[in-house]
Design a protein around this nucleic acid. Structure first.
Lengths: 220, 220
DNA sequence: AATTTCTTGTGAAGCATTTCACATGAAAAA
DNA sequence: TTTTTCATGTGAAATGCTTCACAAGAAATT
């Protein structure tokens, strides 16, 4: 006999992004001293509709009180659990160039529980150097060190030409998710999560908007 | 008598992002020596469906040849025109901290025609310093210098607490579009385009995916 | 205690986006 | 030249996402 298959709710990417937004608004509301917040207020702060807020939350449960709204601290905790940021994540940065070293000092990451604990580069001049208290490791030890440290997420900021090799290495090392800044389409096994961060794309969107006098439904 | 109102096709954000992707694939195809490409091949490279590719392009015209596909160079040119990257854009970076100074050296920007021509900071130690051949200006001259140079886009990489002031300044100076890295919701007049780049959000998405064993339709 | 006010949670409706499927037409092959 | 193959462009169908609208329930007010 087998247990029920877990119901696979298909949550959209947009919903997850909005959860991140709610989380940030709730942190602010907390600081501002609010105990409760309505979907209306939350929506206003994030330029959304109240229905959207309630629908997003409804995928995960009922967190509010009718007539009153949501308890700020409680909802923040709940969303933190849903997003998996109620814990600390070990993250490695691969490629300590301009972007890579900027990310090492990026406060928002650690604030959300993403702790950069290891840096890698292939440049002999960089290996051994200190960035914010971390020593840059040789990229040749990538697989071994990632596996040893139990690192689950990596950020890839190497040139496009070598990014795929890095991916292959970290996948072998047991990494579960990759945030890629290299402007290239990487191949990963289907059980590995990959996101691409492409900052040029955002400027291209703006360029398109200016040139075409675009009136979008919602600018992100 | 008045001329016809221009037909306001509502192009989705997704379509525009995919155009950026096609553009990049076409650049690569060009380098690889291909003269033509089918929607099938383009789709394969970007992990999309051929129908999606054709539909996206169809919003802007008919660029292909039946039985043959698209001329690589011609399509690339067309998409470049649509995205408005068939020209050079002057961009200023406001806030020369970790992220800001990394972006100054970010090659992808200039490669797509986004030229960073001016840097601003409020820190006396940074003002006057040289980054990749550019001298950091005093943020107090923001409005004047942006207007003088005819800068249309700015990238904001200042702390969240002061970002709104910067926005107000550059809007007065006549900037048309803003790419914001500060984790805050900025207010802009409705004729100004604003995009927010939030790198933590991408890690949060990955975190969610790992924790919930998420199977998304399309990981971006 | 009864009434009013407020706000959630959620099916259903309304929109938007993606995919299907095929007529059309160009190129390649016979 | 004729036939076959290939691949576009596009209405229509399917799917997915957002908004509506309201019953239900909790708090505040009378």
């Amino acid at each position: 006999m087998s247990s029920e298959l877990p119901e696979k709710k298909r949550i959209s990417e947009s919903t997850i992004h909005r959860l991140s937004m709610y989380y940030r608004s709730l942190s602010l509301l907390q600081k501002e001293g609010y105990d409760t917040v309505s979907s209306k207020e939350l929506a206003k702060r994030e330029k959304l509709t109240p229905a959207q807020v309630r629908k997003d939350l409804s995928f995960f449960g009922s967190f509010g009180t009718r007539g009153l709204g949501y308890d700020v601290t409680e909802l923040k905790t709940k969303i933190g659990e849903i997003l998996g940021i109620d814990r600390q994540w070990k993250v490695a940065v691969i490629g300590i160039g301009n972007i890579g070293s900027a990310l090492v000092s990026y406060k928002e990451f650690s604030r959300q529980g993403f702790n950069i604990v290891k840096l890698f580069d292939n440049d002999q001049r960089k290996i051994g150097s200190n960035h914010k208290g971390l020593i840059v490791s040789d990229i040749n030890n990538l697989e071994k060190e990632i596996a040893e440290d139990g690192i689950e997420m990596v950020i890839i900021t190497v040139p496009a030409t070598v990014a795929q090799y890095m991916v292959d290495d970290v996948v072998r090392a047991g990494v579960k998710a990759i945030l890629n800044f290299a402007p290239i389409n990487l191949k990963v096994p289907s059980n590995i999560y990959l996101r691409n961060e492409n900052m040029s794309m955002e400027l291209e969107y703006l360029s398109f908007a200016i040139v075409n006098n675009h009136t979008p439904k919602n600018m992100k």
